[in-house]
Design a protein around this nucleic acid. Structure first.
Lengths: 364, 364
DNA sequence: CTAGAAATAGTAAGCGTTTACTATGGAGAA
DNA sequence: TTCTCCATAGTAAACGCTTACTATTTCTAG
């Protein structure tokens, strides 16, 4: 890379900190209003003038100050998304969808993570409100603490009043009359389907492992699980359901404990694929073969599912699509859900994907 | 959730869109300056007054307008990070580190993705400049196109002039005299170590698969690979190195092709873990056992590596730490690299982690 | 007592845009 | 020729906040 500085060298031509629109105006010999108009192109500017302005812009390396612009009334063209953890694939894929759709619609994307802290989640919503984002998308299950719900509802109203909107992605409504938009997936249906599949293979004693208690996602998956049991007339056995957490570590350690306790079962339903991965690991460690000795299923169909050996039979959730829809909904002009449920709730389907981790039970 | 509206119901008390500081001032019967000071706490305000103000703030659900604040001179308290793809674990873990460190230092985090498009990358840097972020962190390898480098160098200067800074994370310098900060990891060293390990196990014909050609990351890994070969006096064979892409799909399809061509080799070095996963899949499909028939290694030590069967021997890169360091460096007051290399370049180490995918070759 | 230092509050000048209004030439119409 | 109407360009008023100055009190010390 040579140090020869070409005559068209832009951007750092000016010594000081960032050029302002006034600098551009001066350089081009026009008023700031004219520059602003030439740049936004929503008002006629003579061709010669416009060209002079653009030349000055590149010469000075000018970029508009987004804050001044936002302050002066124009929209921020930014959508905020709040997730649990960037490195969790479940969230990462949703975030990718949001990010892609946002940029398809000419928006930036502000991603923040709560790391499971409810207080932090509320604070982050406020932070996005400070940023005046066009919408804030809240992703993932929620706990059903009524105080929390009330606080979030307040924020939904505040956002709504400010012309923005709160989009709930994969979590339950905040209650009637709270102005939110929602995009969800058929959590209960997927759980039903995969449980039913297990039953159809002959399983009767199915362990359910993982997912925080009192958490909306857990509740729906469990609901589908129970419905499938009920539909086939299989008795619910409380000793078989073990809530806890969504991580791989939880699946591993809880499975070990259960193995130690000699619980009787022929299949395990991991609350998500990560938990299932942990379960598989514990099983492998004890020399229990999957699916010959025990069948295992997961939920989400995150890439690990097909990485595992045996490849995991699981429920496919169109994560990226979920994120895209959230943005579409957020940016659409459709009115909020102001009581009567309307088309601002969107549900995408789920379906099971059958791989190698399930077979009929060996000891029927 | 009842609809009874309690007397302390906040936030939406006001009908209009977001309350301003003036509203709060009026409600509390003081001037806006006093409110501003009570909120930022950098100037004495009588206790009684302060309490009155805070009450009004909660009553009105006031949150400061971040843009007005930024415009009025306060810092934006935001750092920008530009990555390839949110859903790629390599980037996701770095992003997590950035996100965590940023919030530890009281910053928000603006995450955007290029999806491998260089033009878009440049545009995103400008976008962050518009946002006046405290720093922009550019993650991942770069192509060595001189025109691109020059354009990025211009932006580095512009950012620097504006009091922000450009942090290069895991990518080579933009050249001497360009004001950037850098945090990298020992790419070449890791590649050397793992290649040497393969050689020490008796392998002589090692395939190198993956990574875009003319890409800094590929160049360093290949350099380490070659250095290890040279050190042991093994001849470089161009027929054994197959650049291409970083995805799992590439590893799979290229491995299939190579298998069809009957190339002679006993081990494969996947340019990263994803490529290695694809390689493993292709091998498994052909009934070739790993490590008995062929040994395989990867790079990065992303979670998939331990998910795979056999568990992958790979090079550990402290991804999250990398992200954290990038933020620390970005926010530290250390002067930029203005020529003489100084302590604003930080290199974190890599080391190999041995798992189950390597053994001595069966046909020596 | 009284000058001078805190402590506390208010005034008002920006920060960099956007945009409603106003001004200035011509060009075409009457 | 005079009046209207476009096409352009400029003026200046927000936007909501921070902060340098200035103005009051209230102490404290001499």
């Amino acid at each position: 890379m040579t140090e020869k500085s070409s005559p068209t060298e832009p951007i750092h031509a000016r010594g000081g900190s960032g050029a302002t629109i006034a600098d551009v105006a001066q350089a081009a010999g026009v008023s700031v209003a004219t520059v602003s108009r030439a740049l936004s192109g929503n008002y006629p500017v003579a061709k010669a003038t416009r060209e002079r302005i653009f030349r000055s812009v590149t010469d000075l390396g000018y970029v508009a100050n987004a804050h001044a612009r936002a302050l002066a009334g124009a929209t921020t063209r930014t959508v905020g998304i709040i997730i649990n953890d960037v490195a969790d694939p479940f969230f990462a894929y949703i975030a990718r969808g949001v990010e892609r759709q946002a940029s398809a619609e000419g928006r930036m994307c502000l991603i923040t993570a709560t790391h499971g802290d409810k207080e932090r989640e509320l604070a982050l919503v406020d932070l996005m409100r400070e940023q005046r984002t066009d919408a804030v998308i809240l992703v993932g299950g929620a706990s059903d603490d009524p105080r929390y719900r009330k606080q979030m509802a307040d924020r939904a109203r505040a956002l709504d009043a400010a012309g923005s909107s709160l989009v709930l992605c994969g979590r339950p409504s905040l209650g009637p009359g709270v102005p939110t938009k929602m995009v969800t997936y058929d959590n209960e249906g997927g759980a039903f389907a995969i449980t039913d599949y297990l039953i159809s293979q002959g399983h009767r004693r199915i362990l359910y492992v993982g997912g925080p208690r009192d958490f909306s996602t857990t509740a729906s998956r469990l609901a589908g699980f129970y419905r499938a049991l009920d539909a086939r007339g299989i008795e619910r056995d409380p000793a078989l359901v073990h809530e806890g957490a969504f991580g791989r570590g939880f699946g591993y350690s809880r499975m070990r404990e259960l193995l130690d306790q000699d619980v009787d079962f022929t299949a395990v339903f991991g609350a998500n694929d990560l938990v299932a991965a942990g379960i598989l690991e514990a099983l492998e460690e004890r020399g229990i073969r999957v699916p010959q000795d025990v069948s295992v299923v997961g939920y989400d169909d995150v890439p690990v599912a097909s990485e595992l050996r045996p490849r995991l039979t699981t429920v496919r959730v169109p994560l990226e699509e979920l994120g895209r829809e959230a943005v579409r909904l957020a940016l659409s002009q459709s009115p909020h859900d102001a009581g009567a449920s309307s088309d601002n709730t969107l549900t995408v389907g789920t379906h099971i994907v059958i791989r190698d981790s399930v077979s009929p039970p060996s000891k029927p």
